[in-house]
Amino acid sequence: MELEEMMARLEALGTEQNRKVYGKHGAKEPLFGVSFGNLDKLRKEIKTNDALAEQLWNTGNTDARTLAVMIVDPKTRTLEQLEQWLDDIDYYCLTDVLVTHLASKSPLLPELLERWTTSDREWVGRAGWQLMAHAAMKSKALGEDYFLRQLGRIEARIHSSPNRTRDAMNAALIAIGMRSEALEAAALAAAARIGKVEVDHGDTDCKTPDAVAYIAKAKSRKR
């Protein structure tokens, strides 16, 4: 599939309403405003295409970059390539898509967790802690002791971390608490000591979930 054809399809799928909504959430121009539902349909159609992914990323278009991280093969990405793409991002939704579709499936997962969660840079830190949340929910390779140590790191740093990093650390706290009963107790205790986590969500209706309430609600759903 040629780049020009895909860009034309993305442009046709974009809407002015989506552009406004994404813009409020921090998406930068150029931007068509393609819904995530339509991007996912394209992902399923294309499957994996590294060459097209690179071309889409290099356009600088936010929709094209979002599709790029959905169709690139996580196994082919080197650390340098992953971090180059992450360095180009200053939009939390694209950061999160990169984590979900690419970083979380990378064989470099342990190294990415170590490198990104220790970063003081807002978007790199966000990616690291969103990746930690994903690992807490999905990874069988990392043990309970590992996640218990992360609770201490979150408690020590969350209030002094950059805005969007702070948001992701709160998500990681919740995810760790949902992993097991033992971690639930430790996460609830940490959340109580942390208290309210303030995150500026800009001109949106997004709210920062209270970790204690969220973990308790998730537990009740499992019963």
Rank of each mutant, 00 (worst) to 15 (best):
F147L: 06
H201K: 13
A172W: 09
N170M: 07
L188M: 03
G195F: 07
M132K: 14
A189E: 13
K140H: 06
E155S: 08
I194H: 03
A186H: 03
S161T: 11
A172H: 08
T204I: 08
R149Y: 15
A182Y: 12
I154M: 05
A135D: 00
E155P: 00
E181V: 10
A182C: 00
G195L: 08
A187N: 03
I158D: 02
R126H: 15
A190I: 06
W116Y: 13
I174Y: 06
R149E: 15
I154P: 01
A175Y: 04
R166Y: 11
R153S: 12
S139Q: 01
E155I: 05
S180W: 06
D200W: 07
R153P: 01
G125C: 05
A135R: 04
H201F: 15
E198N: 13
A187T: 02
S160G: 13
R193F: 12
N170C: 00
A127N: 04
L131Y: 05
A156M: 07
A186C: 07
M169W: 01
E144I: 00
A175S: 14
M132T: 08
Q130P: 05
W123F: 15
Q150T: 08
E181I: 03
R126W: 09
G152E: 12
A187V: 06
R193C: 07
D203R: 14
A135C: 14
E144N: 08
W123T: 01
L131C: 09
R153G: 06
A133M: 05
L148S: 10
E181Q: 06
G195H: 07
L142H: 04
G152Y: 10
A168S: 15
W116F: 09
K140Y: 07
L148A: 12
K196P: 10
D167P: 00
M137G: 03
N163E: 11
L188I: 03
D203E: 15
V197E: 02
P162M: 10
D210R: 13
H201M: 11
P162V: 12
Y146T: 03
E198Q: 13
A135V: 07
D145L: 11
M137P: 01
F147T: 02
K140T: 02
P162I: 11
D200N: 14
G202N: 04
I158H: 03
A168C: 11
H134N: 10
T165S: 13
I176Y: 10
D200V: 02
G177F: 08
P209T: 07
A213D: 14
T165I: 10
A186R: 10
I154V: 12
A191L: 06
E144Q: 11
E122Q: 15
V124P: 01
K140I: 06
A133C: 04
W129Q: 05
V212H: 02
L131M: 12
E122C: 14
H201L: 10
N163A: 14
L148G: 00
A171P: 05
H201I: 09
A192N: 11
D167S: 14
T204K: 13
R153Q: 07
I174W: 09
Q150I: 04
P209L: 07
K138G: 02
I174R: 10
D203Y: 09
R121N: 15
V199I: 12
R179W: 00
R126C: 04
